[in-house]
Structures are given as structure tokens and as C-alpha cells.
Amino acid sequence: MSRPAPFSLRLSDDERQQLEAQAGSMPLASYIKSVVFAAEAPKYRRRQKPPVAEQQLLAEVLARLGATRSASNLNQIAKAINQGTLYVDDDLVTDLKRACAEVAWMRATLIQALGIKS
């Protein structure tokens, strides 16, 4: 019968000293197991993932957002403004800032909804 792979846990020096003090003469691994598998150990709910169909739709929206080249287009507009080849009034500045904020919000919200770590 093969044994499962060992479980590794990284602790700071202080955390390890605290565990060793709490374990007393008991082997550290035995102490940790007794605490983790105690009946009163806290139970954590699993994070719910969106249904697969919903996740696929979110992924498609994120892909389409990336395919629109909005970031590139906004960069080209910013370059034209900086070069002075585009007339800019207060209304255009407001619209551009709003568009940038909305695109950034959509991207961040989709990444969060999909559970992707950026």
C-alpha cells in the first residue's frame, strides 16, 4: 500500500516556536493533526464558483473585450493628444476618462467573476 505524498506547511520562526510550545512533549505533526481534526475545528464554506455556462459566457465577454483593441485605440488617442494632433476640449477629456474607467472596471469585474488571478 503506497502512502500519500507528505503535506508541507511553511511557518515563520515565531509560528513554529508557538506550535512547539503548545505541543509540549507531543510530536509536532501529531499535535497539528489533533488540532486540525478535532471535532470543534472550524469548518469553512467552499467558495462557490459560477456555473460552467455562466463562466463560459464571462470568459467570452472577457475575450471579446480584449479583441476590441480598446486599450490600443485609447493609447493611440492619448498619443495624438500628447503630440498635439488632436483637438481636445473639456468634454472630450471627460468622455475619454469615463471610457478608460469603464473599460478598466469591466476588465477587473470579469477577472474577479472568473476567479482569475491577475
Results as ranks from 00 to 15, higher is better:
Met1Leu: 13
Ser2Trp: 07
Ser2Val: 05
Arg3Ile: 05
Pro4Met: 06
Pro6His: 06
Ser8Tyr: 15
Leu9His: 07
Arg10Ile: 09
Arg10Glu: 15
Arg10Asp: 14
Arg10Val: 11
Arg10Trp: 13
Leu11Glu: 08
Asp14Thr: 07
Glu15Val: 00
Glu15Ile: 01
Glu15Asp: 06
Arg16Lys: 15
Arg16Leu: 14
Gln17Phe: 02
Gln17Val: 03
Glu20Ile: 05
Glu20Cys: 04
Ala21Phe: 09
Ala21Asn: 12
Ala23Phe: 10
Met26Gly: 04
Leu28Lys: 12
Leu28Val: 09
Leu28Asp: 10
Ala29Lys: 13
Ala29Gln: 15
Ser30Glu: 15
Tyr31Lys: 10
Tyr31Arg: 05
Ile32Gly: 09
Ile32Pro: 03
Lys33Ser: 07
Val35Cys: 15
Val35Thr: 10
Val36Tyr: 07
Phe37Leu: 15
Phe37Gly: 11
Ala38Arg: 13
Ala39Pro: 13
Ala39Trp: 02
Glu40Lys: 10
Ala41Asn: 08
Pro42Val: 04
Pro42Asp: 05
Lys43Ala: 09
Tyr44Arg: 09
Arg45Asn: 08
Arg45Ser: 10
Arg46Asn: 11
Arg46Pro: 11
Arg47Pro: 06
Arg47Tyr: 04
Gln48Asn: 11
Gln48His: 13
Pro50Leu: 11
Pro50Val: 05
Pro50Glu: 07
Pro50Ser: 02
Val52Pro: 11
Ala53Glu: 12
Glu54Arg: 08
Glu54Cys: 03
Glu54Tyr: 02
Gln55Asn: 06
Gln55Glu: 12
Gln56Leu: 11
Gln56Glu: 04
Val61Tyr: 01
Leu62Ser: 03
Leu62Lys: 02
Ala63Val: 04
Ala63Tyr: 05
Arg64Asn: 12
Arg64Lys: 04
Leu65Pro: 00
Leu65Ser: 00
Gly66Pro: 05
Gly66Lys: 06
Gly66Ile: 00
Ala67Asp: 14
Arg69Tyr: 03
Arg69Asn: 14
Arg69His: 08
Ser70Gly: 14
Ser70Pro: 00
Ser70Asp: 11
Ala71Glu: 14
Ser72Gln: 14
Ser72Met: 09
Asn75Gly: 09
Asn75Gln: 08
Asn75Cys: 02
Gln76Cys: 08
Gln76Gly: 12
Ala78Ile: 00
Lys79Gln: 03
Lys79Ser: 07
Asn82His: 08
Asn82Ile: 01
Gln83Ala: 05
Gln83Lys: 08
Gly84Val: 00
Val88Trp: 01
Asp89Val: 00
Asp91Leu: 14
Asp91Asn: 13
Leu92Ile: 06
Leu92Trp: 03
Val93Tyr: 02
Val93Ser: 15
Thr94Arg: 01
Asp95Val: 00
Leu96Ala: 10
Lys97Arg: 13
Lys97Val: 13
Ala101Gln: 12
Glu102Asn: 12
Val103Lys: 12
Ala104Leu: 08
Trp105Ser: 13
Met106Glu: 05
Ala108Tyr: 09
Ala108Val: 01
Thr109Ile: 00
Leu110Arg: 02
Ile111His: 03
Ile111Thr: 07
Gln112Gly: 04
Gln112Val: 01
Gly115Ile: 07
Gly115Cys: 06
Ile116Val: 13
Ile116Asn: 04
Ile116Gly: 01
Ser118Tyr: 02
Ser118His: 09
Ser118Lys: 00
